[in-house]
Simulated scan of single mutants.
Amino acid sequence: MADADRDRWDSRHAAAVAAGADGIAPPDALRGRTELLPPGGRALDVACGRGAVAVWLAAQGFAVDAVDVSPVALDAGRRLAAREGVPVRWLLHDLDAGLPDAGTYDVVVCQRFRDPARYPELVARIAPGGLLVVTVLSEVGEGPGPFRAPAGELRAAFGALEVLHHVERDGEASIVARFSGSASTSARR
């Protein structure tokens, strides 16, 4: 990621923190579906931003790794986790270089970060029986844009998993899928 991009994200996160935009929440695709979560284990929040989802997962009892490129966002996440009294491991990492390799997870969340080159890596990080939760901006109901997924992108990318929920509308696409442990080798790469 270019320094200008990192600076832009730092600025956006700093403005949100200054406006008091902090709190915890489940991933958008799991709202009303939290019963799909496994009973515990490890969780990965990719492009975690200020940590709302990472801290929520930790409050549910998961051991959470939260990854983002913005030091400002990670600092806000640390403060949020401290306020909520939960541990989270915060990882400063440029996702343009791929996901950090820290084994597999029982829950992998990627919300509002779209890089189709990372999709196979997301699948590879899911432990057998684990849950993948992805929400991206979509062209469906909104029109094309450089950061928007075309119709069907998530189902095509993650269709080898057991799809529990999938929706595309109003400029967003979400998928919740479980890795049964029997996905093809190519789907896990």
Rank of each mutant, 00 (worst) to 15 (best):
R12T: 11
A59F: 03
E121Y: 03
L137M: 13
R89D: 09
D28E: 07
P71T: 14
A25L: 10
V107Y: 04
V72C: 05
G130F: 04
A15V: 07
A21I: 07
A47G: 08
T104G: 06
L30F: 05
C48A: 14
G61D: 08
L37P: 01
D115R: 10
R78C: 01
L80V: 14
R118Y: 00
A43H: 00
A63H: 09
V64H: 02
L44C: 06
L131S: 02
A15K: 15
A81I: 08
A25K: 07
V133Q: 01
L122Q: 02
C110Q: 05
G51S: 07
F62Q: 01
A29F: 07
P38K: 11
A66F: 05
W90Y: 09
V134T: 06
P100K: 10
L92H: 13
R89F: 07
A52H: 02
G41T: 11
S138Q: 00
G77E: 00
L74Y: 10
A117T: 12
L131Y: 03
H93I: 05
I24K: 04
T34L: 14
D96Q: 09
A82K: 14
P71W: 06
L74D: 02
H93N: 06
P87E: 15
P100S: 12
R33T: 11
D65L: 13
P71Y: 09
D96Y: 03
G32K: 11
D75Q: 14
D96V: 12
G61A: 14
R50Y: 04
R33P: 10
C110A: 11
